[in-house]
């Protein structure tokens, strides 16, 4: 891991290379949100309040596909649940009164968390703020541009914009399927999702996959972890 000096501008500099990816995703999100039936203001509001790509893409794509709001929100919740763990590890280092830590925790997303978590296992508040502000401006700004410009372009489906959201999930998946249990979970999820698409409303296959894997993890971990790891639970 690269070490950054503990100040706001280091956080900004660390976030700069990521800003391109975040910007491209923001443009795609703005476009897809409008195509799904959200107004420009709604698309911008979602980016400004959620400030996290994966739950936004999940919610909007399930909604666009004709899924229920409940299915969309549950999928977004599952994807956002990791931020609870991240902000819990960051919280003690955020400093100041409770309400300020609560405010700063809103800057926590995969990218900013990784930047602010220094190599000596310390969480740096200034790096979080520097990187968070930078990526927040890029995220909301690019969403606005995508939402305004997108509909003017007509059908940009030909450009493959709809392939960017699954590609983002592939990027996020990298490094998370190194263990046997993670690979088994992914395989079960793929099987259940593919097998149920035809029988349940859009969005629900994701919930069924999660229910099955969590059920297995908590009831018979041996299937996921292998027999030798059974005693861990």
């Amino acid at each position: 891991m690269i070490a950054y000096a503990s100040n706001y501008s280091s956080g900004m500099r660390a976030a700069a290379p990521l800003a391109f990816a975040i910007g491209a995703l923001g443009l795609a999100f703005g476009y897809l949100a409008r195509a799904a039936g959200l107004s420009t203001m709604a698309a911008i509001t979602m980016s400004a309040t959620t400030f996290a790509g994966s739950p936004q893409f999940a919610a909007v794509s399930i909604f666009a596909d004709g899924g229920t709001i409940l299915a969309a929100i549950v999928a977004a919740t599952l994807l956002s649940s990791r931020f609870t763990a991240m902000s819990a590890t960051a919280a003690p280092s955020l400093g100041g009164p409770f309400w300020r830590r609560l405010g700063l925790s809103q800057f926590v997303v995969d990218e900013t968390w990784a930047i602010a978590y220094t190599s000596d296992n310390r969480f740096d508040r200034r790096l979080l703020i520097g990187a968070g502000l930078t990526l927040y401006v890029v995220h909301v700004g690019s969403t606005a541009i995508g939402a305004v410009v997108g509909p003017l372009l007509g059908n940009v489906q030909a450009l493959g914009v709809d392939a960017m959201s699954p590609a983002l999930f592939v990027v996020l998946l990298k490094g998370r399927v190194a263990s046997r249990e993670a690979r088994t979970a992914a395989a079960i999820a793929a099987g259940i999702a593919l097998g149920t698409i035809r029988f349940v409303p859009p969005g629900v296959p994701i919930l069924l996959a999660v229910a099955a894997v969590l059920g297995l993890t908590l009831s018979s971990p041996a299937i996921l972890y292998g027999r030798d790891r059974r005693t861990d639970f």
Partner: peptide
């Protein structure tokens, strides 16, 4: 609880999202 669930929860949600976004349109494969 987070430690126990996170390693399998994320791959599950992400894989299910990828599969449904790539291989489905509404209720059709």
């Amino acid at each position: 609880l987070i430690e126990q669930i996170t390693p399998v929860l994320l791959p599950t949600v992400l894989t299910a999202l990828i599969v449904t976004q790539v291989f489905s349109a509404g209720r059709h494969l």
